[in-house]
Amino acid sequence: MEQNILLQLSHISKRFKTDLALKDISMSLHPGEVLGFLGPSGAGKTTTIKIITGQLRQTSGEARILGTDSTNIDASIYEKIGVVSDNSGIYEKMTVWQNLVMFAQIWGVSNARVEEVLRQVGLGEHRKKQAGKLSKGQTQRLVLARAVLHKPKILFLDEPTSGLDPATAVEIHKMLLDLKAEGMAIFLTTHNMEEATKLCDSVALLHQGEIVEFGSPQELCLKYNTNKRYRVLLDGKEEVVLEQTSENVDMIADWMRRNQVQRIHSCEPTLESVFLQVTGKALSA
C-alpha cells in the first residue's frame, strides 16, 4: 500500500436487511487532501463515515483508516481523527471554554491549544458565554473547534454547513481551507455542490449507494462539457448564449475586435448539472 494513504476503502458494501445501502465503494485519502462525497439524502454518505470510523460494520469489503482495518479499531482511533456531523451536540449548560476544556482533558491537550483554537474560530471573546446561548453559526464553529482540538490526521465532516447562513458557511469554509493547508486530510460529505467545488480536491458522486463518478470538480465539469457554449453580454445590454461553431467563434471575435463585449463566460456544467446528467436526479433532492 502507498505510504501516505490515510484512508483506503476497497469494495465496501453495506446491506441493511434487504436494502443495499452501499455498493462497491472504493477510494483513498491523502494528507492535505479534501475528498467530497456528494449525494442527496439517503445516498449513503453518513453510512460511509460510520463504517470508516468503526461505528458501523460493513457487509463486505475493507476499510483501512490510518493503517488499521476499521473492523479492528477501538476507541483510541478517535485520538487521531475528528468527527463532525450535522447534529453534533454541545453541552449547552457549560461555557464555551468548558466545552473545549473537557475534551482537551480527554485528549491530553494543553489549555494553550484550547486558547489557540478558540482564537482560530473567532470565539475568543465568547469563552465565558454559556454554549446554549450561541448563535447557530457560533455553535457550528465551536463544534469544529472541538473536532480539531487534538490536531487529528483526518477530519470527517458530515454536512458541516447544513442549515447555516451563507456568511457563516463562508467562515467555516475558510477554516477548513486553513486546516487543509496545515496538512489535515478532510473527508467531507455534502449535498451542496458549491461547497464541494470550492473545497474539494476530488469528489465522488454518490447515487443510491454507488459511486457513479469520481474526479476533481474541474475534471468532472469539463468531462461533461460536451456541448460547449458561451454566454456573452454585449454593449447594448443584450445577452446571448452561443454554441461553439465556427460561425459563432467568428462572430464573437468580431464583437471583441469592435469592443462590443462587456462580459463573456463559458457555460460548462456545474457539479449539480453533472450529477443530474449522470443520475437523472437533482443533487439537492
Binding site: A75, V83, G89, I90, Y91, W107, R146
Partner: peptide, 17 residues
C-alpha cells in the same frame, strides 16, 4: 439528556471507552 442533545455520540467518538 445526552442522547437528546446529541452529545453522547460526540463523547463516544472522542476516544472514551
Amino acid at each position: 439528556e445526552e442522547k437528546e442533545k446529541h452529545t453522547l455520540r460526540v463523547l463516544m467518538t472522542s476516544s472514551i471507552t
